[in-house]
Simulated scan of single mutants.
Amino acid sequence: MQFAHLPPLAASLFSLLATVSLLLSFVMLGSRWISSYLYAFAAESWTIAALSAAVGFYGGYPELYLIALLTALFRGCVLPYLIWQIVRSTRITQEIHVMLQPSTSLVLGAFAVVFALLIGVRIGAQMGLSQTVIILALTVMLSMKLIGFLMLTLRYEAISQVLGLLVLENGIFLGSQILVPGMPLLLELVILFDLLVVVACFGVLVRYLMRHVGSTNTMQLRKLVG
């Protein structure tokens, strides 16, 4: 892999941006306020955009500058704005019903990071990439996927669940920037378009729940079963 051996400054920069992205995922996992979710997701998207630009600079991939710009624009601005409009229309400000308390969710998230680290180290050892930024990229990617999955399963608000799905996808996107930085530009654009479709579909679902159920709690979907 190209980034198996990086200059110390580049490795430190990549590690810092990846770690900040992971910490912002924990902010989302440990909060019950929808506004905190949105701010953390926007900051996480901007951090990943900065990572894309850094990978483009050190790896010689000029197309990643465009990806960084689109990531900052769509993930960091457009998607949070669309979700915020849904929040304003539903007037939902926080999670009321949760399966686990935020503190317990954070503990599960910590175990997820340890599990991801063990897998990352094992994969790195098999590929001869021990003690490199590649292991960190694998760990952060798997950790964010697991944290996104926890948000999908432990939260009942539809808005929280769509943000969990976006965090999961952010983890995949972050890892791909370091592991496969030469991913075709067209594929990246397709992923961004898919995210817009996902948010639009959840917007329709949330409005349907508010109109016919009176709540955005997905547990209420049981009432629709005939």
Rank of each mutant, 00 (worst) to 15 (best):
V180K: 11
L174N: 10
V197C: 04
N170F: 00
L179R: 03
E169T: 08
L196S: 01
G175V: 05
G171P: 06
F202C: 03
V197N: 01
P181R: 09
L166T: 12
L189M: 15
L179V: 12
L165F: 13
C201L: 15
L192A: 05
F173S: 12
E188Y: 15
I178G: 03
V199W: 01
L189I: 15
V204T: 07
V199I: 10
P181V: 10
M183P: 00
L196K: 00
L165I: 12
V180D: 10
V199T: 08
L165H: 03
P181W: 09
M183Y: 10
G175P: 05
L196G: 14
V190H: 13
L187Q: 07
M183N: 03
V198R: 03
I178P: 03
I172D: 11
L196W: 01
M183Q: 07
V198H: 01
S176L: 14
V167S: 08
V199H: 01
F193E: 02
L192D: 02
E188H: 15
F193N: 01
Q177C: 06
I178A: 03
L189F: 14
S176T: 14
D194L: 14
I178C: 04
L179F: 04
I178F: 02
V180P: 00
L186V: 14
L174Q: 12
D194S: 11
V167F: 08
C201F: 13
V180A: 13
L196T: 01
V180Y: 14
V190L: 15
L179P: 04
G171I: 06
F173L: 13
V190A: 15
L195A: 05
F202H: 10
D194W: 04
V167E: 10
L187S: 10
F193T: 11
L192H: 08
L192F: 14
V180I: 15
S176C: 07
L168S: 05
L165A: 14
I172T: 12
V198L: 15
G182W: 07
E169Q: 10
V198Q: 02
G175N: 06
V199A: 05
L185G: 01
I178L: 14
L189K: 08
S176H: 06
L168A: 04
V190M: 15
L168W: 15
L185V: 03
Q177S: 09
A200E: 03
S176W: 04
L195R: 12
